[in-house]
Computed example of a mutant assay.
Amino acid sequence: MFDLILYAIPVFALCLFLEMASFYFLPDDDERGYELRDSSTSLAMGLGNVAVNVGWKLVVLAVYAAVYQLSPLSLPADNPWTWVVLFVADDFIYYWYHRTHHTIRIFWASHVVHHSSEYYNLSTALRQPWTPFSSMPYWIPLAALGFSPWMILLQQSVSLVYQFFIHTERVGKLWKPIEFVMNTPSHHRVHHGSNRNYLDRNYGGILIIWDRIFGTFETEEEKVIFGLTKNINTFNPVRVATHEFAAIARDVWHARKWRDKWGYLAKGPGWQPEGATSSRTMSNAG
């Protein structure tokens, strides 16, 4: 199975080096740049994600293949319009996958890893969860609609490669038509911000139009404060990967009512029963 992400790793490494060099030779007091421990943690999280996906993608491929075989539909890979439709459909699904992984706490427990850095550079893009298991159901409908599993996985990889390059402070706002349609470094900085007016904004993958349509768009105005509203203050990869699952476990254990236990799992990262004190890590950017 062709894995675009693996082939892109040398490009990622080169771009990381160039961005670090740019901060060294052209420092900017308004940009945080790189911090060795933070970047090392991000790289460790990325490598762990790759290792987990070696086995997990086989499971995903098997499920997509089973659904595809059962579907009466089969879209031709040699038709350019198939790829156009797949691009739009994949990006639409990514928007809702991303949004729900910020608004449902058990999903946030996995995704919070990506937002746990207080820096914003290309290494931050590599800070990925070691528990990617909740993403699979979102893309099953594409297999049912007749998209071949390898096409779905390839388009997912294209989206991830694109999103790598928008994790940077080095690029300001782009030409307005691009900013209107595409997810850009400026839009994604907002998404990673813990500023109050930046919370729960800009979920888009490649396109930003879904945020404009569904009311979650916010333009970059004030300086972005990166990280969580309650930062975890650790560079330990294991703690980064598991801290919110541990917090959920504590909250569920101490909750007396079953509806409260369910609330700690299924409601937002900031939810708690009236009068209770939660051990949660709050969402940073929706």
Score class of each variant (00 low, 15 high):
Asp3Ile: 14
Tyr7Gly: 15
Ala8His: 03
Ala8Gln: 02
Pro10Thr: 12
Val11Ser: 11
Val11Ala: 15
Phe12His: 01
Ala13Cys: 10
Leu14Ala: 15
Ser22Gly: 01
Phe23Asp: 03
Glu31Ala: 09
Arg32Phe: 00
Arg32Pro: 03
Glu35Lys: 14
Leu36Phe: 15
Leu36Trp: 12
Ser39Arg: 06
Ser39Pro: 01
Ser40Asp: 00
Thr41Cys: 08
Ser42Thr: 00
Ala44Met: 15
Ala44Glu: 06
Gly48Pro: 05
Gly48Thr: 12
Asn49Thr: 00
Asn53Ile: 01
Gly55Phe: 11
Leu58Gln: 14
Val60Tyr: 09
Val60Thr: 13
Tyr64Lys: 02
Pro72Asp: 11
Leu73Met: 12
Leu75Ile: 04
Leu75Arg: 01
Pro76His: 08
Ala77Gly: 14
Trp81Asp: 05
Trp83Ser: 13
Val85Lys: 05
Val88Ser: 10
Ala89Ile: 09
Ala89Lys: 02
Asp90Met: 15
Asp91Cys: 00
Tyr94Glu: 09
Trp96Asp: 10
Trp96Gln: 13
Tyr97Trp: 04
Arg99Ile: 01
His102Cys: 04
Thr103Gly: 01
Arg105Met: 03
Phe107Trp: 14
Val112Gly: 06
Val112Pro: 08
His114Pro: 04
Tyr119His: 15
Asn121Ala: 07
Asn121Ser: 10
Leu122Thr: 02
Ser123Trp: 03
Thr124Ile: 02
Pro141Ile: 01
Pro141Lys: 00
Leu145Met: 15
Ser148Asp: 14
Pro149Glu: 03
Met151His: 03
Ile152Phe: 00
Leu154His: 07
Val158Arg: 04
Val158Asn: 09
Val158Asp: 11
Ser159Ala: 12
Leu160Met: 08
Val161Asn: 09
Phe164Lys: 07
Phe164Cys: 07
Ile166Leu: 11
Thr168Val: 02
Arg170Ser: 01
Val171Ile: 15
Val171Ser: 09
Gly172Ile: 07
Trp175Gln: 08
Trp175Arg: 09
Pro177Ser: 06
Phe180Pro: 01
Asn183Ala: 13
Asn183Gly: 11
Pro185Lys: 10
Ser186Gly: 04
His188Leu: 07
Arg189Pro: 12
His192Ile: 06
His192Glu: 07
His192Phe: 06
Gly193Lys: 08
Arg201Val: 02
Asn202Arg: 09
Ile208Thr: 02
Ile208Asp: 01
Ile209Lys: 06
Gly215Asn: 01
Lys223Cys: 03
Lys223His: 14
Phe226Ile: 04
Gly227Asn: 14
Leu228Arg: 05
Thr229Gly: 06
Lys230Cys: 10
Ile232Thr: 12
Asn236Gln: 04
Pro237Arg: 02
Val238Thr: 11
Val238Gln: 01
Ala241Cys: 05
Thr242Asn: 03
Thr242Leu: 15
His243Tyr: 02
His243Ala: 03
Glu244Arg: 11
Phe245Pro: 02
Ala246Cys: 09
Ala246Ser: 12
Ala246Arg: 14
Ala247Arg: 13
Ala247Tyr: 09
Asp251Asn: 15
Val252Asn: 04
Val252His: 05
Val252Cys: 08
Trp253His: 14
Ala255Thr: 10
Arg256Lys: 15
Lys257Met: 08
Trp258Asn: 09
Arg259Tyr: 13
Gly263Ile: 07
Ala266Arg: 02
Lys267Trp: 12
Gly268Val: 08
Pro269Trp: 01
Trp271Glu: 10
Gln272Glu: 12
Pro273Ile: 00
Thr277Arg: 14
Thr277Val: 15
Arg280Gly: 08
Thr281Ile: 10
Thr281Tyr: 04
Met282Gln: 02
Ser283Ala: 15
Ser283Arg: 10
Gly286His: 05
Gly286Met: 05
